[in-house]
Amino acid sequence: MSLRVLRAGMLTTVQDLGRTGFQQYGVIVSGVMDSLSLRIANLLVGNPQQAAGLEITLMGPTLLFEQDTLIAITGADLSPRINQQLVPAWRPVWVRAGSQLDFGAPRFGCRACLSIAGGIDVPLVMNSRSTCLPAQLGGYRGRSLLMDDSLPVGSASPQAIQRIRHLAKAVSDQSMSSVTWLAGMDLANYAKEPTIRVIPGSQYDWFTAASQKTFLSETFCISPQSDRMGFRLSGPVLQQQKPRELLSEAVTFGTIQVPADGHPIILMADRPTTGGYAKIAQVIAVDLPVLAQMKPGSKVRFQAITLEAARQEFRSREVQIDRLRCGIALN
């Protein structure tokens, strides 16, 4: 089974939950920007949560399914259509062999996740199928998808096979069929102008009291120079009390660094492993998917919470995802 690319979109890459375990060698973690969406899409098609899917940015590709299969689309609403009919999101969708999936106008968010039963089965590179664009590594030949690519798809799980049989039974000549329920959309908390929760960073005290206040009260804008590596923010300038040199040290997904020009940068999936700018804050894990859906030009504010509160959010989110997993398996 394979998935053919008939037309390349703006930027579509194979992603899983990232290439962890090699950061001491400078290996960029990469992985999907909105991990919640990919995990739920995988659960919906009976895959392990860490299976590889496609991350589709703003203008989607046209894809051809060569066999009957089960897919799920989550994350951004980029108007997905199968043979001209809108595909319901956040649910398992049976697709007939020979069907074409394409995308229309982006209606909400920036990145959609597409999971397919069996997962995208590109070779593992350092334990991950993620595409690392800066190093041109992993994924499909280390790059975003192009016309005529043919993506290998793994074997569907027994749960997926059962769902495919069940959904296929109910159709006559339609190209797709789905269930009446949807799952996981409510977990995402997406918003057009979200308030992103942060934990103060290790150099928070380096900034002037005025800049600390500005950071936590003013509105910032995601600049056009934003990508999978990081989001640059335009807006108020943040100042340090005095210029201080920081030696490079580890940075992670959601670390907010402030270079000398005073404009913060939020590090995202393709970030380098280390950085040498002052870290004013760290985005809490459960708010990273919200951030990942923000387009250049959109507005964001920040709110500080404690490490303990962030951990509580993380735990309750994981419990919710696990409940969802059980619910999907039973339905």
């Binding site: 962890t20 375990g21 090699f22 950061q23 001491q24 030696l247 490079s248 040290e249 580890a250 992670t252 492993t273 280390t274 490490l307 951990r311 993380f314 735990r315 994981e318």
Partner: peptide, 22 residues
């Protein structure tokens, strides 16, 4: 512990929050 990153004056440890804590 999942992995660690040694740097000039720091060593950063990444861990699984389900299995351990700060």
């Amino acid at each position: 512990v999942i992995e660690f990153v040694p740097a000039y004056t720091t060593l950063t440890i990444y861990y699984d929050l389900w299995k351990t804590s700060f």
